[in-house]
């Protein structure tokens, strides 16, 4: 397996692990952070697949904005533990 392929497989493994962590951890805040990590992994995956426009949107929306909105919403309902 070429080094680049190996890196891609590791990236996909990180994506799946972050997604699994997002649905299985008990703390809501940890779940939000897992989702953010998953978005970063997805963004790098898109960049890997030469879809730079999509990668940029995923990084800005998924990793940046959605995390901020989720944390703000969690703070609002007092679940920020």
């Amino acid at each position: 397996m070429a080094p680049l392929d190996l890196a891609f497989v590791l990236l996909l493994a990180l994506l799946v692990a972050a997604a699994a962590s997002a649905v299985s951890v008990r703390s809501t805040l940890a779940s939000v952070v897992s989702l953010s990590v998953m978005s970063v992994a997805a963004a790098v995956t898109f960049a890997f697949l030469e879809a730079l426009d999509v990668a940029m949107a995923e990084a800005a929306i998924g990793a940046g904005l959605m995390t901020a909105l989720f944390v703000a919403a969690l703070g609002r309902i007092g679940d920020l533990t």
Binding site: L52, D53, G64
Partner: peptide, 25 residues
């Protein structure tokens, strides 16, 4: 840069707008 060069380089109004929003937040 992302917004103004949307027709030249990857990205565009949507991506740049979100990045701008994150900056304001």
């Amino acid at each position: 840069a992302i917004i103004l060069q949307g027709h030249l380089t990857p990205g565009g109004g949507f991506q740049g707008g979100v990045a701008l929003a994150v900056l304001a937040i």
